[in-house]
């Protein structure tokens, strides 16, 4: 009796999801061509790293060699209670690149992502040892203000999580609280929505509830909300896992464009996605960092056989 019941509920939810996706497909289709156009205006500076792609050595555990590492992680260990969730992780994240974390579920990649803006602080039985330097500043030092850190290191979540407010208020939320003068807020909102390739779709309905947007639009709204506090680094925690393919492609295009201004770290289950959009990839397995390097190297010529096994689909 129970089993049937839950099955029914499940299929019902599936149907609902299906419908939603269909809806968002339509929405997104209409605005397809607008993205390209907008981003040309938005990002023009900082092209210096672009050309160095091939010459730059892959990030390695040795920290001294490579310049322009915006994040340096040294010997990071993390426990949830007695569960040793991250084991002795050291990694460098280069500036203005897309860095992908891949690995099977429960391998610690999301946990690791969350150490970088100290979202793990919100979990009571979480304990961390080791150091993470952002711009040569240890973010786990006592004098670090966690809210300042999170302003610099923005985060976009798996499930789009707009606030129950208007589209405008969602984007204005951060700057308002951080004391940006009232005059500047409309400009920031517009700029951020443009940055997230959403402006064209919502500019006539800024006062509407954020929940009136499709799933993909909501996720871009969350990106706009993050951009509005002007971070240097943006963490993406499986941002497309709840989205349909078209919305996913939009977010991917957006991420590729955002890296000109921001350093991007993305956790993804989708290896094609990692291959498509990232410059560097790190492979995690049971709390360990197995291998890291340029995405092309990781995917075409993995050094560790576990990496190879995962990438070729033998497990995970």
């Amino acid at each position: 009796m129970n089993a049937t019941k839950s099955e029914n509920a499940f299929s019902f939810a599936d149907t609902l999801n299906g419908e939603n996706e269909f809806d968002s497909d339509e929405d997104d289709f209409e605005s397809e061509n607008e993205i390209e156009f907008e981003n040309e205006i938005e990002f023009e500076n900082e092209t210096e790293f672009e050309n160095e792609n091939s010459g730059e050595p892959a990030p390695s555990f040795s920290t001294g060699k490579v310049k322009k590492k915006i994040i340096e992680v040294k010997d990071l260990d993390l426990w949830y209670g007695n569960n040793h969730a991250l084991k002795n992780i050291s990694i460098g994240i280069p500036k203005n690149k897309v860095f992908a974390f891949i690995g099977p579920s429960g391998c610690g990649k999301s946990t690791f992502l969350r150490t970088m803006n100290r979202m793990n602080d919100m979990i009571s039985n979480c304990r961390i040892e080791g150091e993470i330097y952002i711009d040569n500043e240890n973010i786990y030092a006592k004098e670090t203000d966690v809210n300042d850190l999170r302003k610099r290191v923005g985060m976009v979540f798996q499930k789009a999580n707009p606030f129950p407010m208007s589209i405008y208020d969602n984007v204005a939320y951060g700057p308002r609280i951080h004391g940006v003068s009232k005059k500047k807020i409309p400009g920031i909102v517009e700029e951020s929505l443009k940055g997230a390739a959403l402006w064209k779709e919502v500019k006539d309905r800024l006062k509407d509830s954020a929940f009136s947007l499709s799933g993909g639009q909501q996720q871009r709204l969350c990106i706009a909300r993050t951009l509005a506090v002007k971070p240097e680094i943006i963490l993406f925690d499986e941002p497309c896992s709840a989205l349909d393919p078209i919305s996913t492609r939009k977010i991917e295009e957006l991420i590729t464009k955002l890296k000109k201004e921001y350093t991007i770290i993305i956790v993804t289950h989708n290896m094609q996605q990692a291959a498509r959009i990232s410059d560097y990839t790190a492979f995690f397995l049971s709390g360990e960092l197995v291998e890291t390097g340029k995405t092309v190297h990781i995917f075409e010529n993995p050094q560790d056989e576990r990496t190879e096994g995962y990438i070729t689909g033998r497990f995970g």
Binding site: N117, R150, R152, G154, F157, N161, F163, R225, T226
Partner: peptide, 15 residues
């Protein structure tokens, strides 16, 4: 109130 709101707000550096 959904946990997501708290997380989203915290991630923006809001106390």
């Amino acid at each position: 109130v959904p946990k997501e709101y708290r997380e989203a707000s915290a991630a923006l550096g809001v106390t």
